[in-house]
Design a binder for these strands. Structure first.
Ligand SMILES: [Zn+2]
Ligand SMILES: [Zn+2]
Ligand SMILES: [Zn+2]
Ligand SMILES: [Zn+2]
Lengths: 152, 152
DNA sequence: CTTGACCCTAGAGTATACTCTAAGGTCTAA
DNA sequence: TTAGACCTTAGAGTATACTCTAGGGTCAAG
């Protein structure tokens, strides 16, 4: 099959397949007379392997290692594969933890703001970013009322 | 103060401060005779504001909006700030959800592999990436034993 | 007067993974 | 034979946010 069909069957674009070839991840098993890339069923399996690996969050560099293990399994041991997976798990867990901290802070920031059409003069979001003081919950929907009362 | 001191006090590098200036986020309030950037206490507050905003996960583009609200609060309303925060919350939550799915898949992938020095011939990680079949838990520490028994 | 720490600009480089363009060749069907 | 779909290459562009370099000027201390 040619690159267009492999693209359809693998779910990767032809562009991406050529890019992966440049990166040394996948080679067409032959070339036609007109120099078109010709792929086999095995190549399709490889393309799918790469796609699945990417979906699991592995980088192209990591995929390369998986591919080399796959290319000659007896020459490799389970630990090589598992180490990569474990590192990725740690990595992803760290990212989740970081994002969760950010999320908590964002909620504190956002929840304290009325979000209405009142002037931002007393907006808790801006204030919190200004003074950085623990994203105080002092400013809420009530704050505008208080502010108006004070002005009156 | 000059850029080096602002860098120290704000926690941003001098390079980054110049970069932010290029992006229109912060301006030195003056220049010395020798064309050095001269910053005020207000500039320090701005630098800190930017830094805090970045730490909350806001992009430079979003920080720019916060800065413009901050620069003229009465001309803006709470909703403008809250909308950005809410969008960011959705965004971060989505990223967390995605990563959590990846994490589950990674655990399935990794837990089934013995991770030892046995040949990767029956490695469940490679197998799962090959056939994509729900990351079967069929291969575990026991699998190598079974494989050896079958060979015997 | 020289050394070292600082400052300046414009612009290139880093990271990751694509994504697209230009300019052109090939193939198939009407 | 000609349109349209497909293929080729090398290389540039996209996104984000820095990060660094080259080449040069400024300034206080010893
Ligand atoms: Zn409000
Ligand atoms: Zn508000
Ligand atoms: Zn194993
Ligand atoms: Zn294994």
């Amino acid at each position: 099959m040619k690159i267009g069909e492999l693209a359809k069957l693998s779910g990767l674009s032809a562009h991406t397949l050529r890019f992966y070839e440049k990166q040394g991840l996948i080679q067409a098993s032959a070339r036609s007379e007109s120099n078109y890339r010709v792929y086999s069923q095995g190549d399709l399996a490889t393309a799918k392997f790469i796609k699945r690996s990417r979906e699991m969050g592995f980088s192209l560099e990591e995929v390369e290692v998986f591919l080399s293990i796959r290319a000659d399994k007896p020459a490799h041991v389970c630990r090589e594969a598992k180490d990569i997976a474990q590192l990725k798990i740690t990595d992803v867990q760290q990212k989740i933890d970081d994002l969760q901290q950010v999320l908590v802070a964002l909620h504190k920031l956002s929840d304290a703001c009325c979000g209405g059409n009142e002037s931002a003069e007393f907006c808790s979001i801006i204030e919190a970013l200004e003074d950085g003081e623990g994203l105080s919950l002092a400013h809420s929907t009530q704050t505008h009322v208080l502010a108006k009362e004070q002005q009156a």
